[in-house]
């Protein structure tokens, strides 16, 4: 080995090139994810008991009359697929917002009880108050905000967010689930499929009436969160550093919580708390994208992809039809355990 001391290349250049590569990789990943979402979305419109070729599907979507396909694709598959995308985007975006803000992958809204609070409120409004549509969504959002507030009050008293918050959230999630079960058993002759929607999440029987409020919420609230991207990344460095960087910490946090909870609540009111999507989307996106900037967009796309694929798998791949939440639950729960194992191994003080 000859020890030739090469003069270090201009480190400014190196950093600049690295940044360009990183940004390019990030764009590539986002593009691929977006294309995948579109492909699976299209596939879920075509695949079913009868297969419709892309031409038929496109004509139906454009509003033309195609015998057979107009009903099956237009009334059954389209709202379902749209709701899958909307719910997936909402859950993914809200989940990664919480995970980023609280700096902990376990702090996703479905683990810490916010989603189950929204679900319990929604089913309460439907069964006991006989409401439907937007009123249900508003009830869900109020309950989810309430849960978030309670968590904040309970867990932030010692100024630390950590395992304690997560355990408290798990306790709250248990309460939310038992309230849901209580309401369902009160409903008397509830049918089992409907109950599963509120316990694990399901896209069965999706209609436009349920889908549209969630879609509107996504269109309104997603830009709010995306506009907060820079502030959220700064919050990851800790409150003090963030405010030293000129971020208004409290304002950012309140805005982010309200927007994320809104997304969650509207999606939950439409299809129930689809298990573990908001928990899974962030870490998967982080795996794919690497440490290349904000995870908000990739995680939202991963969420949509997860829900679409899980719904297809649940409907057609397993012999009998499973609601989407059962599929994501079976996928997500082992990952939760894996995450805990890894954190424990690494010597984290969980």
């Amino acid at each position: 080995m000859t020890a030739v001391v090469t003069p270090p290349p201009s480190s400014v250049d190196a950093v600049a090139r690295y940044r360009v590569r990183r940004a390019a990789r990030r764009r590539l990943v986002i593009t691929v994810l977006a294309v995948l979402v579109v492909v699976v979305f299209a596939a879920s419109l075509m695949i079913g008991r009868t297969f419709y070729p892309p031409g038929d599907v496109i004509r139906v979507v454009l509003g033309q009359e195609v015998p057979g396909a107009t009903f099956t694709v237009g009334r059954l598959r389209l709202p379902r697929a749209v709701l899958a995308v909307v719910a997936g985007l909402s859950f993914g975006l809200a989940g990664v917002t919480f995970q980023t803000m609280l700096r902990n992958a376990l702090a996703s809204p479905d683990v810490i009880g916010i989603t189950s609070g929204a679900g319990a409120a929604a089913v309460f409004a439907i069964v006991f108050l006989g409401w439907s549509g937007t009123a249900v969504s508003v009830t869900a959002i109020l309950a989810a905000l309430g849960v978030a507030l309670v968590m904040y009050g309970l867990a932030f008293t010692d100024g630390v967010v950590g395992t304690r918050l997560i355990l408290i959230g798990i306790g709250i999630a248990a309460m939310g689930r038992s309230v849901t079960s209580y309401v369902l058993s009160e409903a008397g002759a509830w049918d089992f499929a409907e109950a599963l929607r509120w316990l694990t999440g399901s896209l069965n029987g999706s209609t436009w009436e349920a889908t549209v409020p969630a879609l509107v919420a996504l269109v309104v609230l997603a830009p709010v969160l995306l506009a907060l991207t820079r502030q959220l990344s700064a919050l990851q460095l800790g409150d003090d550093t963030a405010s030293a960087l000129g971020i208004r910490v409290d304002r950012t946090r309140v805005l982010a919580i309200v927007a994320a909870v809104g997304l969650l609540a509207f999606a939950t009111a439409a299809c129930g708390p689809i298990a573990f999507v908001s928990f899974l989307a962030g870490p998967i996106a982080a795996r794919i994208v690497g440490p290349n900037g904000s995870l908000l967009v990739p995680a939202a796309l991963v969420g949509a992809l997860l829900v679409l694929v899980a719904d297809l798998v649940g409907q057609f791949a397993l012999g009998s039809r499973f609601p989407v939440g059962v599929v994501t639950g079976v996928l997500g729960a082992p990952y939760l355990i894996y995450l805990i194992v890894r954190t424990n191994r690494a010597g984290g003080s969980l």
Partner: peptide, 23 residues
């Protein structure tokens, strides 16, 4: 804390499996 977290996570996993097997 570690035990409780491991337990609740396992519990969540098992509930999913119970539903998937029984459904």
């Amino acid at each position: 804390l570690k035990l409780a977290l491991a337990g609740t996570a396992t519990s969540a996993a098992l509930v999913s499996f119970v539903t998937a097997v029984a459904l």
